[in-house]
C-alpha cells in the first residue's frame, strides 16, 4: 500500500544568511498511511510546528520533499493549492482565528475557498458541526457568544469541513478541563473513523497521545528522534525523560513496580494497566 503522505529528507532553515539563522528541521523522513493516528511529541522548539506547516505547503522546505500520493506538493501550483485542502491544519488555540458573524459562515469559509457548490458547502458545514457535537441551533449564533470550549470546536469544524484526508492538530486540548479534552479527542476520532482519515496530533499530554495514537513521532532538536508504536517509544522511557519529556503516569507506576522487583510488562494506558494487574491477581475477584 502506498502511503498517503511521505516526507523525504526534509530540512528547513529559518532566516538564512542573517544572524538569526537557525535550523528547525534536519533530514526528517517518515510516511503516513490512511486511517493512521499519529501522535507527535517533543519539546517546544524541537521543530514540531515547523514540520506541521510543511505538510500542507504553508512553508517551503529548504531541501527535501513532501509527497501526497507519491506526488510532490511543490510540483506545480495546482498541487500546492490541493495540498492546502487535502491536509487540514488546526493551529494551537484555533478559536482566535474565528471571524465570521455566524458559526455557519465561519465553518463555511474553508469549503467556500475550495470553490464548492452551495449545496455541497451546506452538507459539509452540517456534517462538520455534527462531528464536533455542535447542535443545529448554534449554527446561526455568533461564534463570539460561545464558551471557550465551543469556540474551539467551531474552529476545528472549520477545518474538518474541508474534508481533509490528513487532519493535523497542534495541541487541540490545550487549556481545556478534563471533560472538554475528552470531548475534543472523541470528536477527532469520530472524524477519523468516518472518513478513514489520517490524524496527526501534536500534544504535550502523554496521557492523551498514549490513549489515542497508534504511532508516535518524537522530535528532538530538529531531528526525528523516534518513530514507532507507543509501546516501542515508551519502552525507551529513560531516554524520553532525559529529553525533558514526560511519560504517562501509568508507565511511571509500572516502572516503580518493576524497580520493586515485580515482573510486569511495560504499559502506557490505564486500560492496559487494569488488565495486566487483574491478570496478575488471577482474574476479577467477584466475577
Amino acid at each position: 500500500m502506498t502511503p498517503v503522505l511521505e516526507v523525504k529528507n526534509l530540512c528547513h532553515v529559518y532566516s538564512v544568511g542573517t544572524p538569526f539563522e537557525h535550523t528547525a528541521l534536519s533530514d526528517v523522513s517518515f510516511c503516513a498511511h490512511r486511517g493512521e493516528y499519529i501522535g507527535v511529541i517533543g519539546h517546544t522548539g524541537s521543530g514540531k510546528s515547523t514540520l506541521m506547516q510543511h505538510l500542507n505547503g504553508l512553508l517551503k522546505p529548504t531541501s527535501g520533499e513532501v509527497l501526497l500520493d507519491g506526488k510532490s506538493i511543490w510540483a506545480d501550483k495546482a498541487s500546492t493549492r490541493q495540498a492546502r485542502f487535502r491536509v487540514g491544519l488546526v493551529f494551537q488555540y484555533p478559536e482566535y482565528q474565528l471571524f465570521e458573524e455566524t458559526v455557519y459562515k465561519d465553518i463555511a469559509f474553508g469549503p467556500g475557498n475550495m470553490g464548492l457548490s452551495k449545496e455541497e458547502i451546506d452538507r459539509r458545514v452540517r456534517e462538520a458541526a455534527g462531528f464536533v457535537g455542535l447542535s443545529e441551533s448554534l449554527l446561526e449564533v455568533s461564534p463570539f457568544d460561545l464558551s471557550g470550549g465551543q469556540k474551539r470546536r467551531v474552529a476545528i469544524a472549520g477545518v474538518i469541513a474541508m474534508e481533509p484526508e490528513i487532519l493535523i492538530l497542534d495541541e487541540p486540548t490545550a487549556g481545556l478541563d478534563p471533560s472538554g479534552r475528552e470531548d475534543i479527542l472523541s470528536n477527532i476520532d469520530a472524524y477519523r473513523q468516518a472518513k478513514n482519515a489520517t490524524i496527526m496530533m501534536v500534544s504535550h499530554s502523554m496521557n492523551d497521545v498514549a490513549k489515542m495514537a497508534d504511532r508516535l513521532l518524537v522530535m528532538r532538536d530538529s531531528l526525528l528522534a523516534m518513530d514507532g508504536t507507543p509501546e516501542e517509544v515508551f519502552r525507551r522511557a529513560s531516554e524520553l525523560v532525559e529529553m525533558g519529556l514526560d511519560i504517562p503516569e501509568v508507565t511511571r507506576v509500572f516502572l516503580k513496580l518493576r524497580s520493586l522487583g515485580l515482573d510486569v510488562p511495560m504499559v502506557y494506558t490505564k486500560e492496559q494497566a487494569v488488565k495486566t494487574l487483574t491478570a496478575l491477581k488471577g482474574g476479577v475477584p467477584n466475577a
Binding site: 491544519l89 493551529f91 484555533p94 482565528q97 474553508g110 475557498n113
Partner: peptide, 12 residues
Amino acid sequence: KIMSAQKARGAD
C-alpha cells in the same frame, strides 16, 4: 499566526 491559520483554510 492568524495569516497562516487562514491560509490553511484556503484563504488567498
